[in-house]
Every structure is written in structure tokens, then in C-alpha cells.
Amino acid sequence: MSAAAGTVAGTTAILLRAAHAGPALAVTVLSALLALSAGLSPGRAALVTAAVLAGQLSVGWSNDLRDRVRDAAVGRSDKPLATGALAVATVQRACGAAVVATVVLSFACGPVAGLVHLGCVASAWAYNLWLKATVLSWLPYAVSFGGLPAFVHLAGGSRPPAVVVAGGALLGVGAHLLNVVPDLADDAATGVRGLPHRLGARRSTLLAVALLVAGSVLLLVTSSMGLASTVAGGVLVAVLAGLALLGRGRAPFYSAVGIALTDVVVLVVR
């Protein structure tokens, strides 16, 4: 590999880290699975997945651009913009390109579907730019996660089931609470006061469990899975919920994450 190629590869890797590659990949994979389970053709499913990936990249980059000063203040060594490993202009250009790709790919899925997906992305941007530090920090997650299955179904020409939209919204709010809990101390040091910060770690985890259990029940009782699979899913959720309520240390957090993953599986295979 030439020095130039190595530099490009290195910059790309750091850019992906700044885009929150883990969560972006998780949402992108979820959208692909939803597209296939909704009966979309491989080509249509690929288009939906590409639109979601572009949107997630724009959301991740906008988040790090917005928070770079705050991340530097608390010594976030995992944030390339905060450490100076990436130039601000580089991320701005990448974010701008991702926004353009999101608009083009979203409308390629159909005008109504495109508007729904752009609404989901705009909601996530609203979280980054404003709502993250307010008591309404949960709202963009409800809108974006509830809107994702709606976008997938509309892209395939079908009406999104209301229970799936509601289940996605519950999953999104639960995921928001769980995602913020590990960063409560850093956020408090820089004045971020979203809903999880006002509730505290313990109550945020318990509320997340309650929402995820509610989403699980909603998706399970309305699913077309067999009785045995439905009962097995319910038992698994009940066990994880019990561990979350009674566990100590990080056990409640990991148990709640397990419920979230169960909800994702049910959402896909229902």
C-alpha cells in the first residue's frame, strides 16, 4: 500500500469513528432486516439500507461537530474532533456529502417514504442541535425509531402497521435512556440536562426497562410468530426485566440492553 493510500485509509477509519460507527451500523442493519422481512425486493431493500446509512452518517458527524468543544473539555480521547485527530473542515465536508446522499436516496424510495425518512433524520439532528439538553431529549428517539419501520413499509408500497410504529418508538426511547446512562457524569460536567440526567442512572434504567418491556409485550401479542416462540420471547423478557430490577452494578444496564435486543428480533421476525 502506498503512503497516500495508507493516509486515505487512516482518515476514512477515523471519519467512521467520528460518525459513531457502532450505533450507525446497528440502525442500518436493523433497517436492512426490516426491509427484507417486509418483503421488499433485494434492490429496493438495498436502496432503503443505503438511505438509512447515509442519514446515520450525517447524524453521527453532526453530533461530533456540535459536541467537539464539550468533548474536549471532559477529555474524551475517543472523539477524533476533540483530540485533533480530524480537521473540522474534513468532517463538515463529509457531513454535507452525507446530507446530499440522504436526500437523493430517500426520495428515490418514493416521495412519501422519502419525506418520512427525512423527518426521521431531521428529528435526530434536532436532538444533536437542541433537544439533547432539554427534558424533551426522548422525543427525537421516539419519532426516529417509530418512523424507521414506517419508512421501510412505505418504500415497499405498504401501509406501516401501527403496532410496529409504536413498538419502534418505545424501543427508541428505551435505547436513548440506556445510551446516556454511561455518560451522565461527563454530561453533567458540561451542563447537559436531558431527561436521563434529570432522572438519574437508576431511574433511567428502570424506566428504560419498563418501556422496553411494554414494547416487547406489544410486539409479541400482535405478532404472527408461533405460540412457542411468543411464550419463549415473553419468558426471556421477564427474566431480563427481573435481573434489571434486582441486579446491582452494571447488571440492570446489561439486562435492559438484552431486552432491547429481544425487541429488535421480534420487530424483525414478527
Rank of each mutant, 00 (worst) to 15 (best):
S144D: 11
A166N: 08
V165I: 14
R159W: 13
L129T: 02
P140Q: 08
A169D: 06
S144W: 06
V165H: 10
S137V: 01
A150Y: 06
P161T: 04
Y141Q: 04
C120Y: 02
C120A: 14
L139S: 10
L148I: 11
L139Q: 07
V152A: 01
G156K: 03
A162K: 01
S137D: 07
F151M: 06
L136V: 10
G156N: 09
L139Y: 12
V121W: 07
N128W: 12
A126C: 07
G147N: 04
G157W: 00
L131A: 02
A142E: 06
A133P: 14
A166D: 11
W130F: 09
K132A: 05
V163I: 04
P160H: 11
V143A: 15
P140A: 06
V135L: 11
L129R: 10
L136T: 12
W130L: 06
W125M: 12
A166M: 13
L154H: 09
L118R: 03
V152Q: 04
P160R: 07
V173C: 12
A155K: 03
V121I: 14
V173M: 15
A169H: 00
S158A: 15
G157D: 09
V164G: 07
S123H: 05
W125F: 14
T134S: 15
L171H: 13
A169I: 00
S123T: 10
V143H: 08
V173L: 11
A162F: 12
A124Q: 10
P161V: 02
Y141M: 03
V152S: 02
H153C: 12
L154R: 05
L171S: 11
V165D: 14
S137I: 01
A124I: 03
H153W: 08
G167H: 06
L148C: 07
L118M: 10
V152L: 05
P140S: 06
S158W: 00
V152Y: 07
A150W: 03
A124P: 08
G168H: 01
V135E: 13
G172E: 11
G172D: 12
A133L: 06
V135S: 15
F151L: 04
G168Y: 03
A142I: 05
S137P: 12
F151C: 04
T134L: 11
G147R: 01
A169M: 00
V165K: 02
P140W: 04
L129Q: 11
L118S: 11
N128M: 10
V152K: 00
S123M: 04
K132D: 06
L131V: 03
L118W: 08
A162E: 11
P140L: 05
V135P: 15
W130T: 01
A122Q: 05
L118Q: 09
L148S: 06
V121Y: 07
Y127T: 03
A155T: 09
A150N: 07
L148R: 01
A122G: 15
V173I: 14
A169R: 00
G157C: 07
G157M: 05
S123V: 04
W138T: 14
G167R: 02
A126V: 06
P160S: 14
L170V: 02
S137T: 01
